[in-house]
Amino acid sequence: MIDYGHAYCEATGKPAPTQAPRLTPLFQQIAAGTLLPPRGQQAVDLGLTAHSLNDPREDPPLYEYYQWVLAHYFAEQPPHELTAKLIGMAFTCANLFQTDLPQPLTINPWQVESLTTFPLATRRAIVVENNGIFIWLFKRHPTWPLINQAGNDFNPTYVQLLQELEQRGLQLTYLGDLDSRGIQMADYLFQQLQKTSIEQFTALQTPTQVATWLAVHGKSDLKRQRTRRLTVQQPVFQTEMDSVCLLHQFVEQEQLIADYERLMPAWLDEA
């Protein structure tokens, strides 16, 4: 077995970061050609925060080490991973419309008018904040009706089609990151909707459920960046914001896959 940490130290003169051993199983999977989930899920599965392998600002020494190993050992065999780069100015969904086209579908602005009367394949759908979570859930459960919210990508096509779908009776609920920005995004998205009740929108991510997830899975925000207080409009989201800010804990969606897989089918089956 290759000692990547030792090799890194010998080549760079820098000690391997303290978290380096956590990446060893990942490097073994890459070497074996294993299909990996999106990179944020990989990081959380290793006990890291979701952005550790994507964002050099999250943990600079670990990110540098990770990139060094990829460049020196896997240049000819890059990771076989699902990408989270799904959309630009569009609407990405799975199993919403009655069609034989391969899923997921990415809908552009020119298609919106036609799709306002296109037959629906479901009465309920779950809006998922994170690109990577959307595609990972779809990969694991290819028949679930999902809508990719794509973080803060509230583009006009997305908002217009979401409003059209709820006007047609599609019931929507939401799942996102449990940090200040994630809760603020949920609040903002809810304000764009016209027919969806707050009870339905938060059916899976209630204040009680949020508090439980923070207690069980919460990560300490030592830098106080992800748990700073942000403005929200809905009292439900104010309660959730209070929990995050008071505890200085956050939870990333990648940590909740098992819980999602337990909760989502029951809600979808209620339709």
Rank of each mutant, 00 (worst) to 15 (best):
Q171R: 15
Y174M: 02
S180T: 05
D179P: 07
K195I: 03
A150H: 14
I198G: 00
I198P: 01
V128N: 06
Y188R: 15
G176R: 07
V128T: 12
R168D: 02
R124A: 08
V159G: 03
S197I: 05
S197H: 06
L165G: 04
R181H: 15
Q192I: 00
Q171W: 07
P145A: 09
N148G: 12
G182C: 09
G151F: 08
W144Q: 13
T208R: 14
T157P: 05
V210A: 14
V128F: 05
V127C: 15
A150Q: 13
R181C: 00
P207V: 06
K139Y: 15
D187F: 02
L204Q: 05
G182M: 09
L146Q: 13
N131A: 15
E129W: 08
L172Y: 06
V159T: 11
G182R: 06
G151N: 08
L189G: 00
L193P: 00
N130V: 10
F190Q: 04
V210G: 07
V127Q: 10
A211S: 14
M185F: 13
T196K: 01
G132N: 07
N130D: 12
P156W: 10
L165K: 01
P145I: 12
L175Q: 11
E166V: 03
E166T: 05
V128I: 15
P156A: 12
F134M: 09
G182N: 05
A211N: 15
P156M: 10
N148E: 13
L137A: 07
